[in-house]
């Protein structure tokens, strides 16, 4: 099926992904957790990376954002090899990452959290304008410690940062972790809007069905390998088996 599709769409062989992982292997100490992951994020698309716990989804994202150095393979950003580039340099090059859990500094106030977003290039005025316009609640709570916000508000704050710096690539890790489904749905509504504005998004998620609603492409990871890539509807059929052992 791979070969067949390739042949029917020869025009896209030169299609250059904005972010691409090629044959990524990565290990914690001596334990290899990624055994050659290939993944592409084309410009302006949302790619959902799904899979059970321990499959290596988060590790894949860690490699993509530069926090973890792969033992082999390469990371390409707009066609350039950026393997081994520091996370802060990637962040300044337009790759914004909202990591697993709460992508916030709990002991900093809301405003101070937003101040940190200015490292990626946006001015504080710009960041605040975008963040408070979108999430008025954050404005009310700007001098409150981020750690005292509710889970949903914390995730909003993290998203606000992602929005404000206007990134080319947005990497999202377990956006839904510890949040009620309603909140998650709202959050994914925002992800959809960000995607519409042209940002390419790679989202790692366990909360499978919600993310499939906004994704253009979905991939299933199991045991350190991308087992299947397909449209959300194709992937949805496989999910139950991958998660609950069918």
């Amino acid at each position: 099926m791979t070969e067949a599709q390739r042949e029917t769409h020869p025009a896209h062989e030169q299609a250059e992904p904005l972010l691409e992982l090629r044959g990524i292997r990565a290990a914690y100490g001596t334990i290899e957790v990624l055994h050659g992951v290939d993944l592409q994020v084309l410009p302006g698309t949302v790619v959902a990376l799904l899979g059970p716990n321990g499959a290596g989804k988060s590790t894949t994202l860690q490699v993509a954002c530069g926090l973890m150095k792969p033992s082999s393979g390469s990371v390409l950003l707009a066609g350039r090899d950026v393997t081994g580039v520091r996370a802060e340099d990637l962040a300044r090059c337009g790759v914004t990452t909202i990591p697993e859990g709460k992508g916030i500094f709990p002991n900093l106030t809301v405003r101070e959290n937003l101040l940190m977003a200015t490292y990626a290039g946006a001015s504080m005025r710009q960041v605040e304008a975008v963040a408070y316009e979108r999430f008025t609640r954050l404005k009310e709570r700007r001098s409150q410690l981020a750690g005292t916000l509710s889970g949903g508000e914390q995730q909003m704050l993290a998203m606000a940062r992602g929005l404000a710096v206007d990134p080319a690539v947005l990497l999202l890790d377990e956006l839904s972790m510890g949040l009620a489904p309603l909140v998650v749905e709202e959050l994914y509504g925002i992800v959809g809007q960000i995607a519409k504005s042209g940002t390419s998004i790679l989202v790692v998620e366990q909360f499978a069905r919600t993310v499939l609603g906004v994704a253009d492409v979905a991939a299933i990871m199991v045991n350190g390998l991308v087992r299947k890539v397909g449209t959300p509807s194709e992937i949805e059929q496989e999910l139950s088996a991958a998660y609950l052992g069918g």
Binding site: F135, R137, S150, G151, G152, E153, M156, S176, L179, A180, P181, L182, V183, V184, E186, L187, G189, I190, Q206, F207, A208, R209, T210, V211, L239, S240, Y243, L244
Partner: peptide, 18 residues
């Protein structure tokens, strides 16, 4: 696991205006 039907009432997070 899969995130479809509404989960049980979690008062702590309910009604946040995102």
């Amino acid at each position: 696991y899969l995130g479809t039907a509404p989960a049980p009432e979690t008062p702590e997070y309910s009604g946040i205006d995102l």
